[in-house]
Design a protein around this nucleic acid. Structure first.
Lengths: 187, 187
DNA sequence: ATCAACTGAGACAGTTCTGTCTCATGAGAA
DNA sequence: TTCTCATGAGACAGAACTGTCTCAGTTGAT
């Protein structure tokens, strides 16, 4: 059925994120193809994981481009970023959990690049007075990805409706859990 | 060296969280013991994982007890909870990533119990007006654990100093990223 | 010094996974 | 229809992992 490489990769992510030790057999079945075809598409488990990483980072970089996060109000930029990244939250969740076990330099470089771009957004926001300066920009960046991954899990497991995911992410990340009376920026 | 069961479990967590497919061979080496001794301590990989889950949840329940989160100001309770849980952030990170693949009902029940207690704290805070009501308490609970796990990764990888971890977690979670002039509650 | 208990190293068979191969089937193009 | 091409099913050997066992060395207590 799903013969194109991308849908196979996405199916693999769906299984691997829940069952990291899944065998090629199961990965093939999850994608609806045979083990032979899976091997024809990807010469080995390592290559499969590697391409998942490449796909995830390509989509993240594209999302960053589309969100134009280096322009305009930083808060609005974060909302655009969430919009652009949430469709790929599952991939992000996989990557951020697995990113340290990639040997490939190209993958690690791409990840650092993505992380740096997001951190630059928060640094810019801190310098413009939009974001709090008590927390390092690198931590804001990491926390954003942590929550994005969390949203991905929650949606995948049905604990969070897809259409609520953006609000859940941005409202908590931007505004925190503590109630405050006057809105810093309305929806 | 590390003959007691707990240090073996903690060493295993340290490796497994980075390399979920690690073999018993590598797990033994990570704990500084031989494969034979590892098998003497835990009859098989499944038992090992199972005991990690049991240890993690036991520590989390103990932390919840110690933090007395069902008393007093909800914001202060969250700070106490962070204090009590951060020492076990690595275990929490492992559990929250791996929790769905536990077959054991006892583990799942304990996890649900922990999650319910934390969610109850947030619900209480919402009812008392301390926390925002726009976000479901269950999501606040999940996001708190996501960020706790993220802090665990960041500390383990040296991206965050241990003594800053509490502030990083609670400030972001409670106050969000957006700057606001008047403090909702001081430290 | 002697003994008991524990440990590491290594060997071992059994199982599982992997990567490759062949062959038959089915879909689609000419 | 006929041909081509991709696929699935299955077989296969090799590798890796697992769980168990034996044996020798070390530690610590008596």
């Amino acid at each position: 059925m799903a013969t194109d490489r991308e849908s196979v990769l996405l199916a693999a992510v769906g299984l691997l994120s829940r069952q990291p030790t899944a065998a090629m057999d199961e990965l093939a079945r999850a994608a609806g193809i045979s083990r032979a075809t899976l091997h024809r598409l990807f010469p080995g488990r390592e290559a499969l994981i590697h391409e998942i990483g490449a796909l995830a980072l390509a989509r993240m970089e594209a999302a960053l481009d589309a969100a134009t996060i280096d322009e305009g109000d930083p808060v609005a930029a974060v909302r655009r970023l969430a919009d652009a990244l949430i469709p790929h939250a599952q991939l992000v969740a996989f990557i951020s959990g697995e990113s340290r076990l990639f040997d490939d330099d190209a993958i690690n470089d791409a990840w650092d690049r993505v992380d740096a771009r997001v951190a630059a957004l928060f640094l810019r926001g801190q310098q413009s007075g939009a974001f709090r300066i008590e927390l390092p920009a690198s931590w804001l960046s990491e926390a954003f990805f942590d929550l994005l991954a969390g949203v991905g899990w929650a949606v995948q497991d049905g604990r969070l409706a897809h259409r609520e995911s953006n609000r859940a992410l941005t409202e908590l990340f931007l505004g925190g859990a503590v109630r405050r009376d006057q809105p810093g920026s309305a929806d």
